[in-house]
Design a protein around this nucleic acid. Structure first.
Lengths: 173, 173
DNA sequence: CCGATATGAATGAACG
DNA sequence: CGTTCATTCATATCGG
């Protein structure tokens, strides 16, 4: 079937106008985008509907949709889906690893490779996302590691490292 | 002169990070290369100098230069330039798209693909870049903020909001 | 006030 | 070269 293999998306990196102009005095000016409940609802709907990796076109459409409930940029939508995918995946992998650690169950032949062509991952299967709300992290496999410390006073001196050529042109941006 | 020029670039300021990345001696086993500020400066300089696609030879040279400030491989340099180009490109396109809504600007002087040569980007302007901290680059077409939580009177038709199919598994919030 | 967690944003690395 | 994944950083929110 002619899937819109447009695959021309990837639109992140927009200007994150932080604390620019608070349209409303009730707005505590957030530094980063905070999706409103309605927006989250929409996004999750789409994601759970199977569209885990919307093409550029769809991304824009989604953004326009979300915009009705609050300012949002294409990049935000893009990031949201990316993080969502990544997160879901990681969760599953962790859970799997958790189980395999004791069962060593072989049940994942490559996961069909992410780079295959998974544009619309069919969530018809029982997997893809976890319907469970917030299950307590498995106390067995998960371990919090507070890796603090690491104060390093590095940095050498920037000698004459700019001895290339002085063209110094600021092309973009 | 603190003129809010459009001097922008993805300045990621994460100096006060905890687990710093000391190179020699105490390597906290870093999975991927994290360029140090000095290295970034060098790379950025070169890039802004017009050399957006350094040949192998130059890559090696650059790598050796960077090595003075921390471990780095040729591949890292190579990847860095690739990502840099890609990102710059995307930025422009996004900005352009932003403007197209007003000016319908048609311009993309597709730099001739020099095959595998150096390819000095010609989109050079006359300006020196300044390592400015994180700041709002070019605020153009972007959102602002919004509030209105809860039910919103959809003054703009929500179209087929749930045309994707609402399976909503509602997390827990 | 401080620490842990959740999540948006950035970017290095790799795939096609 | 364009797109996607994985890892990391930064900030918000919560809980003590």
């Amino acid at each position: 079937m002619p899937l819109p293999t447009d695959t021309v998306m990837e639109d992140r990196v927009q200007d994150s106008n932080i604390r620019s102009h608070d349209t409303e005095r009730n707005e505590p000016v957030r530094s980063r985008w905070t999706p409103k409940p309605e927006q989250i609802l929409i996004l999750e709907s789409i994601f759970n509907s199977g569209m885990v990796n919307p093409p550029k076109d769809e991304t824009v459409r989604i953004r326009k949709l979300l915009e009705k409930f609050g300012s949002v940029g294409d990049a935000n939508v893009f990031y949201w889906f990316q993080n969502r995918r990544s997160r879901s995946r990681r969760r599953q992998r962790q859970i799997q690893a958790c189980l395999t650690g004791e069962q060593q169950q072989e049940a994942q032949p490559r996961t069909s490779t992410t780079g295959g062509a998974v544009l619309y991952e069919s969530s018809s299967s029982a997997l893809g996302f976890l319907p469970s709300p917030h299950f307590a992290p498995s106390p067995n496999c998960l371990f919090g590691s507070s890796s603090s410390s690491g104060v390093v006073g590095n940095h050498g001196h920037v000698d004459d490292l700019l001895s290339f050529s002085g063209q110094m042109t600021l092309p973009e941006n």
